[in-house]
Amino acid sequence: MKNSHVTQDTDPLLYDGHKRYHPGLSVDCVIFGFHDNQLKVLLLKMSHTDQRWALPGGFVLKDEDVESAAHHVLQSRTGLDNIFLRQFYLFGEVERSDRELNRKMLQGRGVDPHEDHWLLQRFITIGYYALVDFTKALPRPDELSDACDWWDFHNLPPLMMDHARILQKALEALRQQLNREPIGYNLLPEKFTMPELQKLYETILGKTLDRRNFQRKMLAYGILERLNERRSGGAHKAPYLYRFDLASYHKALEEGFSGGW
């Protein structure tokens, strides 16, 4: 029996989404952050799914570009604009959608779906990854979730459908980016030390890098500006602070550079 307060007017996503959105197409966003030397990922706790978590995602309006839909998801979940965003993979396996899980979510919201309900159909999803400043993001749940929180990438809760695979593919894509483009501007504070930048790279790559080789290579790229400031409060000699030369950084994003890790 339907919940009396759930109507087509109050919950149009569930009732007439098939009229507004492109059928069978969605976007899923892996939103990375970096905090306390941990690679973080933003997840949603989905309603009526036995504590299952999911990647922030959404549907594509019939008159909307796919990338615009991804930007809308990111802005809605983090409150941030101008986010670094990359498309990395298309997930189109026949069995990736979980009809029974979606049915349970609908029933939990007072909707008794018929078999051809648009949310019970097969969905192909386009994966995007985004890099955001952990300290500036304001996580917010969507209309199908109860919470939106950061999780350590290496200590994740149970995920719905194929979202664990999407996460792993996103990490692989991020590692590939490290071999041809810079990373850091969107994940670190404006000012940072060379050890902090190295720890970011090591965390993403999952391996230890030689300190001298790392510093030599990063300086050779010409994307860093050393400041006449040092990080205070440490037990050892205070390291210099750096910041990214944004003109050179964005040029490197466009043109790439050689040499991997």
Rank of each mutant, 00 (worst) to 15 (best):
K2M: 09
S4T: 02
T7R: 02
Q8S: 12
T10E: 10
D16G: 14
K19V: 02
Y21W: 10
G24D: 09
S26A: 15
S26D: 08
D28K: 15
F32L: 09
F32Q: 02
G33S: 08
K40V: 00
K40N: 02
V41N: 04
K45H: 14
S47Q: 15
P56A: 06
L61S: 05
V66G: 05
E67M: 09
L74F: 05
Q75V: 00
N82M: 06
I83L: 13
F84D: 13
L85N: 10
F91W: 05
R96E: 11
R99Y: 00
M105K: 14
L106G: 07
V111C: 00
H117R: 09
L120W: 10
L138C: 12
R140V: 11
D146S: 12
A147E: 15
D149R: 14
P157W: 03
R180A: 12
P182K: 03
E196C: 11
L200P: 03
Y201P: 01
E202N: 06
I204L: 12
T208F: 07
D210W: 01
R211M: 08
L219G: 01
A220G: 08
L224P: 11
R226K: 14
L227K: 09
R231D: 13
A235I: 15
H236S: 13
P239C: 03
Y240W: 10
L241C: 03
A247F: 06
E254C: 01
